[in-house]
Design a protein around this nucleic acid. Structure first.
Lengths: 158, 158
DNA sequence: CCCAGGTGATTGAGGGTTCAACGACACTCT
DNA sequence: AGAGTGTCGTTGAACCCTCAATCACCTGGG
């Protein structure tokens, strides 16, 4: 891993800001969202992923990939959502090992009910503080970073 | 919370990228950093905060504020670091309720040993994927967002 | 057919983090 | 001085999340 030059004058504040955001943003979102809707942000993400899938149906493993959660985590979350009637779990007909999660009517209703609250939280915590110009200039950079992080998991440098 | 317009065409990708980053970045950092240095990222943050403080000494509550951790969390982390000899805890002379955390020699040495690894992780997960221009344009936007999040905790909209 | 190895999902155990309750102490007002 | 109130830090209980082990099933080669 050897020699690396320290962060320079542009990089250091960039890094600090990024750290602050990664710790503070989830909190800012969740704190009001859960009491308002009865959904954790994780739950909401799962419901959104299902609502965007064809037939509102997704393999458990696909759900894990699109939400960015681990397989074990998704398993428990889906269990919980099933117990609450927002999601249904069906053995996959073509592959006996696999299961599909399906959004129920109640789940869709719950998602739609939560949407305004989610939107309000997102605006209050992020977009209310940024101009249209900010978003246009920073958006592509963030997108590039997000893509790199998605691709990067392989442990090593390149 | 009423009416809100949905995210527009610039905002939606911005938001998705932000979500990906907040979930993937901490993982990308921690996964290699901990095995390489024996320090969790939380530990590292605490040591950094202490190293930047006058006399390498900070009130427990100040430490919580600067690291963004909760008081209860910082209490346990400092306990743990104390047990490992990297930090020392002293009752505060002026205020019998308070405690100060002080960086030990071993703590400083450990921090310095971990720094190159930290730097390498930061570069590999973030700056290697962005141009100098990216950082110059997105940096101020992120800084503004971070500042807003730090200030915003008050529950309501304004 | 059946065995070996691979994959999808679940589960137990354990660490990380937070919330709420608490004990110790400080400050103010009378 | 004493009562009431607020603040600093700690702790028990609970939750979220992950790792590793495991079960059930699929797939390909003798």
């Amino acid at each position: 891993m050897g020699e690396q030059s320290a962060l320079d004058l542009d990089e250091a504040p960039f890094w600090r800001a990024l750290m602050r955001i990664t710790t503070a943003l989830p909190r800012a979102l969740e704190d009001q969202f859960l009491p308002e809707t009865g959904l954790a942000i994780t739950d909401y993400g799962v419901l959104v992923a299902l609502s965007e899938a064809p037939d509102h149906l997704l393999r458990i493993s696909a759900l894990a990939a699109t939400t960015g959660l681990s397989l074990s985590r998704i398993s428990r979350v889906v269990d919980d959502l099933t117990r609450r009637g927002l999601v249904e779990k069906r053995k996959c007909p073509e592959d006996g090992r696999a299961s599909n999660a399906v959004l129920t009517g109640a789940g869709l209703a719950r998602l739609e009910a939560a949407y305004p609250s989610h939107l309000a939280r997102v605006r209050a915590s992020v977009f209310d503080h940024l101009s249209a110009e900010d978003i246009r200039t920073a958006g592509p950079v963030l997108a590039r970073l997000a893509a790199a992080l998605d691709a990067a998991p392989p442990t090593d440098d390149c």
